[in-house]
Amino acid sequence: MTKSELVEIIAAKQTQLSVKDVELAVKTLIEHMSQSLAEGQRIEIRGFGSFSLHYRAPRVGRNPKTGDSVDLPEKHVPHFKPGKELREKVNDSLKAGY
């Protein structure tokens, strides 16, 4: 499922908002979530999961083409931990034979 398919599905299941409205809302949600993480704020959605940042220490990497070493600074990477309900539902789909 892509973002635009998600928008279509949400729009089809309700009567108040147009596809355009839903599209803008989904875009706003994704920007809000990205912005929170960029500021180091965790996201916690019960039954779905949580997003946080994981720290990566600085390291010396290599340019795979030339073999030169490059100093890579410390950084943070986004991390998602699925919540209980999502974990269970996804695993049930395996048992159900999807």
Partner: peptide
């Protein structure tokens, strides 16, 4: 409130049917 609920519910539903979810710009 309903839109936020629907957003996460629909993603969870797709994943529960073994369907990958791609949100461009996010992940």
């Amino acid at each position: 409130k309903e839109l936020v609920e629907a957003f996460f519910d629909e993603i969870r539903d797709a994943l529960s049917h073994n369907e990958q979810v791609k949100l461009s710009g996010f992940g």
